[in-house]
Computed example of a mutant assay.
Amino acid sequence: MPATLGTVLLLVALLQVKHMFADFYLQTPKMLSGRGVYFHAGRAQHALVHVIGSVIVFVIFGAPWSFILVIVALEWIIHFNIDFAKASYSDKKQLQPNQAAYWRAAGLDQFLHNLTYVGMAWAWVEFVPG
């Protein structure tokens, strides 16, 4: 697919749809519990769900497998660590949904994930021949 403004916007939109499902519909209790521990299998599985969704999106866009494997490996690492940082901070501060700081942490988490998708779209434009 050529990297026109429309295709880049569609790519980002599909990554956003993937994100909505992976973050808000497909999380299991294992993925949600104990997230303040760094080596957490549930968080690794959660990041893997994101990777699977991104693979689907980039396959739809005709990206080569070499690009897909690199971009989703980076996404897994970044997503895993963003989620850990939020969970660790939230646990240390004992944040609850009735506190503004809880929502600031959640908002920053989502903002950083969105920036990841902007970076992934940039990489697609830059490194995938159109």
Rank of each mutant, 00 (worst) to 15 (best):
P2M: 04
P2N: 04
T4K: 07
T4N: 06
G6C: 06
T7V: 03
V8Q: 02
V8I: 12
L9E: 04
V12Y: 04
V12K: 05
A13T: 09
Q16T: 12
V17T: 07
K18S: 08
K18H: 08
H19E: 11
H19I: 15
F21N: 02
F21D: 03
A22P: 07
D23C: 01
D23W: 00
Y25V: 07
Q27T: 06
Q27P: 01
P29K: 14
P29I: 10
L32Y: 02
S33N: 09
G34I: 09
R35C: 12
G36E: 12
V37K: 11
Y38S: 15
H40E: 13
A41W: 11
A41G: 10
G42C: 07
R43K: 14
R43E: 14
Q45C: 14
Q45R: 13
H46T: 07
H46K: 15
A47R: 04
V49Q: 05
V49P: 03
H50N: 13
H50A: 05
H50K: 13
V51N: 01
I52E: 02
I52W: 01
G53W: 04
G53Y: 04
I56K: 02
I56G: 08
V57P: 03
V57Q: 08
V59D: 11
I60K: 01
A63V: 15
A63I: 15
W65R: 15
F67L: 10
F67K: 08
F67D: 06
F67S: 05
I68W: 04
L69S: 15
L69H: 11
V72R: 04
W76M: 14
I77D: 13
I77Y: 13
I77G: 12
I77P: 07
H79W: 06
N81F: 09
N81Q: 13
D83Q: 14
A85Y: 06
K86P: 11
S90E: 09
D91R: 13
K92M: 08
Q94R: 11
Q94S: 14
L95H: 12
Q96K: 12
P97T: 13
N98P: 08
N98Q: 14
N98K: 10
Q99F: 13
A100T: 09
A100C: 06
A101R: 15
Y102L: 12
W103G: 00
R104N: 08
R104Y: 10
R104M: 09
A105R: 03
A105L: 08
L108E: 02
D109A: 14
Q110K: 08
F111K: 02
L112C: 03
L115H: 00
G119I: 01
M120S: 04
A121N: 01
A121L: 00
W122D: 06
W122K: 03
A123V: 00
A123Y: 00
V125D: 08
V128F: 08
P129C: 00
G130R: 07
G130F: 01
